[in-house]
Simulated assay, not measured.
Amino acid sequence: MTKTKKISYWIATLWLSLGMLSSGIFQLLQMKAGMDVIVHLGYPAYLGPILGVWKVLGVAAILAPGFVLLKEWAYAGFFFVASGAAVSHVIAGHPFGEVFPGVLLLILTLTSWWLRPVSRKVPSVQAVTA
């Protein structure tokens, strides 16, 4: 892995982690700003703390060494949450400024996943059987 790719991976991963952790804490603690958005989009208020727990756990999984299969699940979860948020805001007719955070988290998720080092990837079936 080149130095540039490694630095790019960690920048994307740390920004993704910061975004998911901060929004997860807002939702977990049921802070008014985070809950208002969820309810305004038409989702039940109880979804906030559920998403908050999974976001915090996902950040831990992505940053911790090892647990490569768990990392794949965390990336998948982040993909679903970020794309779901972006689409929900678009469907609700919100301006781009409200859609952008979801799009940004989606881009960071895909970038971090794409650039992750070999040590953070699930070995392929061919590599295991060879």
Rank of each mutant, 00 (worst) to 15 (best):
V53S: 04
G42S: 07
G77M: 01
L69D: 11
G52A: 08
K55L: 10
I91E: 09
G19E: 07
V81H: 11
P65H: 04
V68R: 12
W113K: 09
V118Y: 13
S112P: 09
L18T: 13
I11R: 03
W10C: 10
L106M: 09
V39S: 03
L69W: 15
S17R: 02
V81W: 10
L57N: 04
G42Y: 03
W15R: 02
F26Y: 12
V39L: 05
F80D: 02
E98P: 00
A12H: 03
A82V: 02
T13I: 01
G84F: 01
S23K: 01
G52I: 02
L51E: 04
L29P: 00
F67N: 11
L51D: 05
V39T: 15
I107M: 12
A64S: 14
A64P: 02
T111E: 08
G52K: 04
F80W: 11
V37I: 14
I91F: 08
Y43R: 00
S22R: 10
I38S: 01
L105G: 00
P49M: 04
A45F: 01
K71F: 07
P117I: 05
I91W: 06
L104Q: 10
L51S: 11
I38V: 14
W113H: 10
R116V: 08
D36E: 14
K71T: 07
G48Q: 08
A74H: 05
G52F: 04
R116W: 10
L14I: 15
L57E: 05
F79V: 12
I38F: 03
I25W: 14
G58L: 03
S83N: 12
L21Q: 00
L51R: 00
A76M: 10
I107C: 12
F78L: 07
V81D: 15
V59L: 08
A45G: 02
